[in-house]
Amino acid sequence: MVDLSQCYLHKLGDAERGLLAELRGLVPSLVEKAREASEDAKKTERLTIWGVDLEKESEASDIILLKYLRAEELNLDKAATRIVDTLVFRADCKIDGLREAVLPGCYQGHDVISGLDVEGRPVMISRFGKMDLEKVFGDIEAFVRYRAKLMEEAMAQLSFKKGEPEDLTQVHDYSGVPLIFQTSQVKDAVSAVTKVFSDHYPETKGKTIFVNFPTAFAKLFKAFSLFIPERTLKKFQILGENDHAQLFESIPADRVPEGLGGMHRDGALAGPCKQVQVRARCTEEVCLLKVEKTPCSIDWELRVCYWDVSYEVWFVADGTSDLVQKSDGLVQATDGVISGQYVAKTAGELRCHFINNGAWFKSRLCLARAQVHM
Score class of each variant (00 low, 15 high):
130 K>R: 10
252 P>T: 02
92 D>Q: 09
315 F>N: 06
84 V>D: 05
279 R>W: 10
72 E>G: 06
213 F>W: 13
8 Y>V: 08
143 F>L: 01
347 A>M: 04
335 D>N: 13
10 H>D: 14
17 R>P: 00
92 D>V: 06
179 L>C: 06
288 L>I: 00
262 G>M: 02
217 F>E: 04
62 D>T: 10
241 E>I: 10
143 F>A: 01
59 E>L: 06
329 G>T: 06
284 E>Q: 14
341 Q>E: 15
282 C>P: 00
133 L>H: 14
321 S>Q: 13
185 Q>P: 08
361 F>A: 11
24 R>C: 00
364 R>Q: 12
158 L>K: 08
250 S>M: 00
63 I>V: 13
291 V>W: 05
299 D>E: 13
317 A>P: 03
33 K>H: 15
130 K>F: 11
133 L>T: 09
209 I>T: 02
149 K>N: 08
97 G>E: 06
297 S>Y: 07
281 R>F: 01
303 R>A: 15
251 I>D: 04
287 C>T: 15
175 S>W: 05
222 K>G: 10
214 P>K: 07
365 L>E: 03
304 V>W: 01
303 R>L: 11
9 L>V: 08
260 L>G: 03
131 M>E: 10
210 F>A: 05
290 K>M: 00
330 L>P: 11
238 I>M: 09
41 A>C: 15
278 V>L: 05
291 V>K: 02
66 L>K: 01
256 V>F: 03
88 V>L: 03
84 V>I: 11
24 R>M: 01
87 L>M: 07
